[in-house]
Write a protein that binds this DNA or RNA. Structure first.
Length: 464
RNA sequence: GUCCCCAUCGUCUAGAGGCCUAGGACACCAGCCUUUCACGUUGGUAACACGGGUUCGAAUCCCGUUGGGGACGCCA
């Protein structure tokens, strides 16, 4: 059996971090078994689905490296098939026409709730003759649910779950306007797409029992199910916008790397011993549903940030430089070819001290820009008259220095020694002059990256 | 309300009856390294929700309590 999984988001908003993890698990599971990972857009709710959201989801998945192996399936394009299956069930006597109105159903639910019963459809039309129906009413099609016994699902994550059939009711599979309901469409599509493993959020666990009824009625083989726990916000409540960044593309904007986000998401709910850094290849190698936990987990931005730092330090300089220049431009910071080169030259040192691309961009700005950098408040207070005098003297001293990193370091050490100062006392004013900040990459690296002319300009400017 | 799921440091987790005086990671605190900041490194604070069983022995199995979460639509 070739494993086929799918991620099935509804395009009613941006792809959030929980959906991203579901997609990730689906992909990893399929890859681990050498199978396929597919995407189905569940856009049957015309009122809430938008083209923009579809595009957003596609972009988000692409950014994460979770694009599907085959063209996405649009559920809305398959409505004829859904209706066909519903009518087949009707013809086979496994479903029936129900002529209830929305008001009648609402009243039924309310009444049931009031009496402490579960709000279920009472099956009024199950055995009633359709000719009883008022002539102007359009019927929905309801599936006849078994009333005795129980339904058992052997969930690959949750284990064996059993629900009494008396808890279920005759669900609508085809609305009175001829469109399919979600519970029905999902089953038909999963079946037709040859999905072998349905991996989704555990908010769908109770739905599964209803879906099983469709599989059973059609005589179709049920796929394996795996319901993974949801992700909660830092406060333990369901993830929502007030929890800071939740949309996948927000993470991109905040300077997170897709591989770091994936690694973080993977470790949320899945573990393999003490392994924390699990790149894609390793994840594919190790991933198994039996290692997925059953408890909901919380979003922890501090840990994500740490992980991002790890991946950032390991990333290619060229890639990071490109990202930083793009972000500098986005910030409206002007840099020329020289500025770009300086950032490139400094990248190995820069990336050691940043955790996100945004931090990296801020840290690189001084090198990108032309001329003396703006002084940070803290740096300004350290630029005392004494410091300025020192810089003036240092400029003089460095005039004849060969502009090479190791050499420059030797010269600085010599200078400090001659003056009877510690290296730090020399390096710090220099750092401020060159970077405008009290924090920067090592001073020799900054000096060489800037080049003699630019460096000298800045030292002299700060000395005044 | 009814049904379903869950429960180890603040957070993510390791743990499938003795290897647990409960391990790792993030965060936090202290030290070291050091031209700043990071990185790195050493150490520290910190958890088996509670109550009953089962067993020679329970974080691990069972039951209950409490606490979280989810589902109950002609939404997906």
């Amino acid at each position: 059996m070739t494993v086929r999984t799918r991620f099935a988001p509804s395009p009613t908003g941006f792809l959030h971090i929980g959906g991203a993890r579901t997609a990730l698990f689906n992909m990893l599971f399929a890859r681990h078994h050498g199978g396929q990972y597919l995407l189905r857009i569940e856009d049957t709710d015309k009122a809430r689905s938008t083209e923009a959201a579809v595009q957003q989801i596609l972009n988000s998945l692409a950014w994460l490296g979770l694009s599907p192996d085959e063209e996405p399936v649009f559920q809305s394009h398959r409505e004829a098939r859904h209706a066909e299956v519903a009518r087949e069930l009707l013809a086979a006597g496994k479903a029936y026409l129900a002529f209830d109105t929305a008001e009648e159903l609402a009243a039924m639910r309310e009444q049931a709730m009031k009496e402490g019963r579960p709000p279920r459809y009472d099956g009024s039309w199950r055995d009633r003759d359709p000719s009883d129906a008022p002539p102007d009413r359009k019927p929905a099609i309801r599936l006849k649910a078994p009333r005795q016994g129980s339904t058992i699902v052997e969930d690959l994550v949750q284990g064996r779950v059993e629900v009494q059939n008396s808890e279920l009711d005759d669900m609508i599979i085809l609305r009175s306007d001829g469109t399919p309901t979600y519970l029905h469409a999902v089953v038909v599509d999963d079946h037709d797409m040859g999905i072998t493993h349905v991996i989704r959020g555990d908010d769908h666990l109770t739905n599964t029992f209803r879906q099983c009824m469709v599989y059973d009625a059609m005589g179709w083989h049920r796929p394996y199910f795996a319901h993974i726990p949801l992700i909660h916000g830092a406060d333990g409540a369901k993830l929502s916008k007030r929890h800071g960044a939740v949309g996948v593309m927000e993470f991109e904007a905040q300077g997170f790397l897709p591989e770091a986000v994936c690694n973080y998401l993977l470790r949320l709910g899945w573990g393999h011993g003490d392994e924390e850094i699990v790149p894609r290849d390793r994840a594919i190698e190790l991933f198994d549903l039996k290692d997925v936990g059953r408890a909901a987990s919380r979003m922890d931005y501090a840990k994500l940030t740490h992980l991002n730092g790890v991946y950032l330090r390991g990333a290619e300089d060229a890639r990071l430089t490109e990202e930083v220049l793009k972000r500098l431009a986005h910030r409206g910071i002007d840099y020329g070819t020289l500025g770009g080169d300086r950032v490139r030259a400094l990248m190995p040192a820069l990336k050691e001290r940043a955790k996100t691309l945004e931090e990296l961009t801020s840290a690189a700005a001084f090198a990108a820009q032309e001329g003396p950098p703006p002084l940070e408040p803290k740096a300004a207070t350290q630029l005392t008259p004494e410091a300025k005098a020192l810089l003036a003297d240092l400029a003089q001293f460095l005039t004849d220095a060969p502009w090479e990193q190791a050499e420059l370091m030797n010269w600085l050490r010599d200078y400090a020694e001659v003056k009877g100062m510690k290296l730090g006392q020399v390096a710090q004013p220099l750092r401020i002059a060159l970077s405008g900040s009290t924090q920067s990459p090592p001073i020799d690296a900054v000096l060489t990256a800037l080049g003699r002319t630019e460096a000298m300009d800045r030292i002299l400017a700060a000395a005044e």
